[in-house]
Design a protein around this nucleic acid. Sequence first.
RNA 1: CGGGGCGUAGCGCAGCCUGGUAGCGCACACGGUUCGGGACCGUGGAGUCGGAGGUUCAAAUCCUCUCGCCCCGACCA
Length: 564
Amino acid sequence: MLFSKFFIPTLREAPAEAEAISHILMLRAGYVRQLAAGLYVYLPLAWRVMNRIQTIIREEMDSIGAQEISMPGLHPADIWQKTGRWFDIGDEMFRLKDRGGRDMCLGMTHEEIITWLASMEIRSYRQLPQMWYQIQTKFRDEARPKSGILRTREFIMKDSYSFDRDEEGLAVSYQKHAEAYHKIYERCGLKFYQVQSDPGMMGGAAAHEFMAPSPAGEDTIVLCKKCGYAANTELALSVPPSQKLKGSEKDWILEDIYTPEKRTVAEVSAFLKADPSYFIKSLLLIGRDGPFLALVRGDQELHEKKLAKIVGEFRAAQKDEVKSILGVGAGFIGPHNNTLRKIADILLKEGIYISGANKEGFHTKGIKPDVHFEAEWHDIHVAQAGDTCAKCSAEIALEKAIEIGNIFQLGTKYSQPLEAVYLDENGIEKPVIMGSYGIGPARIAAAAIEQNNDKDGIIWPQSIAPFDVEIIPLDMGDKEIGETAGMIYSNLSGEGWEALMDDRDERPGIKFKDADLIGIPYQIIIGKKGLKEGIVELKSRKTKQAERIAPSDVVKRAKELTGP
RNA sequence: CGGGGCGUAGCGCAGCCUGGUAGCGCACACGGUUCGGGACCGUGGAGUCGGAGGUUCAAAUCCUCUCGCCCCGACCA
């Protein structure tokens, strides 16, 4: 491919709206352009990357026996109504009506549609298991699209679905997907983790996410280097450090202490000269069944998602609600002396504490859990660096990560309402057991850039680079340079290499800058000085190391370094 | 949806406070000199100042409304 004929609109300066590294580099290097919030045009370079990623995905999906299909992006509402998601999902679903006034939506995912298909076609256990996948556009009206192509309102996704007779079959399909995903990410040159995740609105039992560590990520994951425990903080268990005992605390007796105008843990902690770990933070929340208290240790944060999994939806109480329910201001509420339902962090089961006295201007010291109040005990705190692993007690690490894929065991969540059933060997009708599995190719591309770049630009992993090699003749006016470049180009092409040749009549500096920005992993630099000595340079984008080799040796050497 | 910021030439920005000729750098076109890490000189083209309404003799600038984009949070199958 000739650079002069290929559309690569590089920019010297990045548009001001870009913040994430991958976003800035994709704009500057001429990969994408933004149409509107969360909507992007993929230019030729980016589309080549996407195609390479999709090819890898197809190969690995096919190798586990999945079959590619294609489903519509526009869906009738009634199928989504049958599973209830038409009502459960809010503004994030694009909804519209067709000319006949029928409710429709743009597909955010395809569980409903594929289950409809299965319900029409699957009759017998003899037809199972099945794995079907597609690479297709999804639409989600994101509340806040961000970070370039990392979070968009329209995006391509590989989604696959498994259909099995029973849970054992599902476990096999699930495992096959997990293995295929590992291969896909490895082949794409990504650093990644498989972590436990929250099934969320997908429903079902087990779920894992594949996470590419990056500061640009929206998720935080908890990792234990010792035992391998890995989970999204949405559900990650951890054991924070215990109270720092000075010795005298165990002699505390239950007493109220006057703490005028001291409301927050920080204020009371400073006032009483006691570490925040001696406090119980009491939060009055309003759930579906009325008000309740959530209790976490003073140095901890409540994880609202963990709590929501236990009690369902809730919201914080307003100031006047606190007054009317507990008869005291928000800074002085505590777990004892009231009959409200209490959900307490498991960490509070041990120790002795100070908390609000439920009396204006007072805190109570010497509170012992299970003695002075009772509660339902759950892990509801946010895992933090410095905590230890709930499984093996080693110190855990926290990392920001980009979600690049997920796998869910759905069970019968969709097959039941949509009546996707089969007859087993005994002629008994049973619902199909399903799994669902997603990968975002654009996120793979963005994560690859986030993980592989330097001050000059992108450094693509070879497998997903838009081209394998860029040939850079420094002076197109020089006959010998032009001929050598042409020879190398056709030799490489003949061996299956995809080469981009910068045939533009530009100064060397511009060609070097653009080449580094675009990030093709190898550059072959052909200049007058080198040719006088009979050599060209083969330069690694990543290391910036250049080898001086004879033009005729380029193919041989390139093969040694890496395959096409 | 809550909080904050920004919309002036393709990109990056100044001008706005204190109303009066729309400007700079890069990019682009042409000519010349250059040519191993984003060259230099000269000439030139390009802007409904996001939009609407208002105040004023006069609005990029002041006021009101509105649209869009970005960031933080909430949300996120």
